[in-house]
Design a protein around this nucleic acid. Sequence first.
DNA 1: CAAAAAATAATGGGTAACCCTTATTTTAAT
DNA 2: ATTAAAATAAGGGTTACCCATTATTTTTTG
Lengths: 213, 213
Amino acid sequence: MEITILVADDHPLIVKGMADFLLSNGYKVIAAETNGIMAYHKLINLKPQIAILDIEMPDMNGFQIVEKLNTNGHSSTIFIFNTIHKEQSILQRAIEIGVRGYMLKESTLDEILICLQSVIRGGTYFGKNLTNQYNSDHENTITSKLSPSEIKILRLIAQKKNTKEIAEMLFVAEKTIEKHRSNIIRKMGLSQTKNSLLIWSLQNKDELLLNKI
Amino acid sequence: MEITILVADDHPLIVKGMADFLLSNGYKVIAAETNGIMAYHKLINLKPQIAILDIEMPDMNGFQIVEKLNTNGHSSTIFIFNTIHKEQSILQRAIEIGVRGYMLKESTLDEILICLQSVIRGGTYFGKNLTNQYNSDHENTITSKLSPSEIKILRLIAQKKNTKEIAEMLFVAEKTIEKHRSNIIRKMGLSQTKNSLLIWSLQNKDELLLNKI
DNA sequence: CAAAAAATAATGGGTAACCCTTATTTTAAT
DNA sequence: ATTAAAATAAGGGTTACCCATTATTTTTTG
């Protein structure tokens, strides 16, 4: 029997490219969406065997779609992410919510087929190029070496809040936030220059804000 | 006679999607690359009538390719950019170096055909959704309201240099850089809070660094 | 329950990024 | 050649982000 697949990505060309490619390789593409909410509804109604999703999409992102379907309704769909994100911690979170395949948009067409074959056989596929680009230790430390409060503060810093604003939002003294900032800088091995924490948090913004914790 | 086209994008799926789409619409795709330098060499050797290029690519970006071909060798190829960048000033620079079409990756397949038809007829196509998302005044001011020195300094700020480092690099006093920073903040209407200039320069990094000036 | 870890907070000090104003020199434009 | 604009620089001031140390309270964990 043919394998049914849903494809979703906010770039129409990728949706079409993927759909055509899958069709020419014997898969049955039953839906192709460029919007998160539309993809979500089609997933509920059509129950495809596989869904290949982008992470960033209008209205609803890939994480939200998978989380909602894997917790409430017990979806039987196998989820694969197709994304530009190489960060180890984003892959990590994808694995945690039950995503079975993870491909980079820069990956070759062969890799798409290898990934599909692997998940269909009941396995997983979490592409290469992920631990290469950045060192995996560095990426892991954000979630592993920091305490919950530190991560909460870090996310606010990434949203351009200053110490005073963060203190007001969390109902604690500014000195407390200052201490946390200092601890984060020490734990992460950042330089002692001004704004190193701000710059670093903005660079790791995707990773910090896509991760829940 | 069939129109010859070269397609280049660092995401293989987009290259394939675009090539297939163009072929099925009667165009002749004579090259499809995922690397800037490869695209550049094929453009010289194959001289396609049209080139559809991504901006960000490994080894050589879209701007570099078009500039090199439009200045040195007198290329007869019509250039179209297919990019994620909505910034008015990036479109502006593309127009200045002779790019005849500009599409966003989120644009529909219809738009691709409309763009092609327009440039083939000798016209231009600079898609919608560009002045919508951000207000165009705001985007224009970066290059129009700032002096050459101010822009030079702004680009160094976007590269995380502090006042002292910039002063040393430009062989001027720190006070001079401070004055320029202050002028930039005033001209751009930024807030008087600490680091507003750093944050703003990082947010507009693509625009600042892709533009030469 | 005791020990470890985390969160809270203060005292005190350094530096960089901002503010303002004034002023000279250099460069561009009419 | 004269104005206008830009680049240069300095003095003086505020605040946010950093440092280090110490210490109490709360939470977690064995």
